[in-house]
Amino acid sequence: MLAFRAYSWFLSRRLGLALLTLWGLASLVFLMIKLMPGDEAQMAAGADASAAQIEAVRERLGLDAPVIMQYFSFLGRLLRGDLGTSIVTLQPVLADLEKVLPSTLELVFIAMLLNLAVAIPAGIVAAYRQGGVFDATSRITAVMLGGMPAFWLALVLQYVLGSVWRVVPISGQQSYGMASPIVTGAPTLDALMALNFGAFFDALHHIILPAAVLAALFATQIFRTLRASLLGVLRSDFIMAVRAKGATARHMLVRHALPNSLNPVLTLSGTQAGAMIGSAVLVETVFARQGIGAYMFNAVAQKDAFAVLGSVMFIGTVVCLVNLVVDILQLLVDPRIRAAQLGSQGQ
């Protein structure tokens, strides 16, 4: 019971902090709108609007009020989930995001899984066999992948795997006639929910290459961070004590070395989740996928201010949430952080 209270106190503190961060981001976004060249009323009314129409829009959007009042009503609209209206789709930005977001989250989720599934085992083996053949080759690979621009990697893989060897499709998210009834908007998930396994594997087939490209960039960071962290932990005294108990290398690595080197990896993957949504802009464009990336790309290209800013707010929210999850995970891994954050109640 005490532990529960300590946890909920910790959670409410962190949630408060996340809200504060989002408020800061919202204020920044508001400032950006105000500082952007061009007349908002003009932008909202469209390029062909007459002076009278523009004035009508100005009045309707409250743009004739003092800036400080506009700021408060902007925050009020945000709280009600109103991100403004896109001048391209003429739909509320939130409704647009609901359509494109599941596809992006699906891409980012699979990319994150690929990222961790490749980088963590590779980091463990490279650190345990430091200076060995695997260590050398994986480090060289990491430097090469890390130094490669994402669009270039995407284009090369599209050409080699999609065009020359023809093992994966080079664009889109599913084949014609494979669409399942839209429930979530994420093709793999929708196919799974419709129990349409043909469509499920088709969607996976389409997502694997873009997800791999997205994962590659981030996997090099996780690999290097984990390897460095593990090398330090493997040199520490308690690892020798664990070996002295007769533990196998596998037991020592999985039960002791890995948990003790996980903290920087958790922190990094938290920031990566946000950066991945940002990088999705590129990958979705190159692979002609729907998603927040493609949406933002078009919004920027067409100077659709509210669409851009709505997307920014949204990505900010996701980053805050992911970091909250990371904070909780770190709490679960390390009893010392638990003691410091939860106080004696948490014990």
Partner: peptide, 18 residues
């Protein structure tokens, strides 16, 4: 651990903190 075991110098650093 079963036939030969070892005790170490600094008991803090030889215990897994987690």
């Amino acid at each position: 651990g079963s036939s030969i075991a070892m005790v170490f110098q600094d008991p803090m650093s030889f215990l897994d903190p987690l």
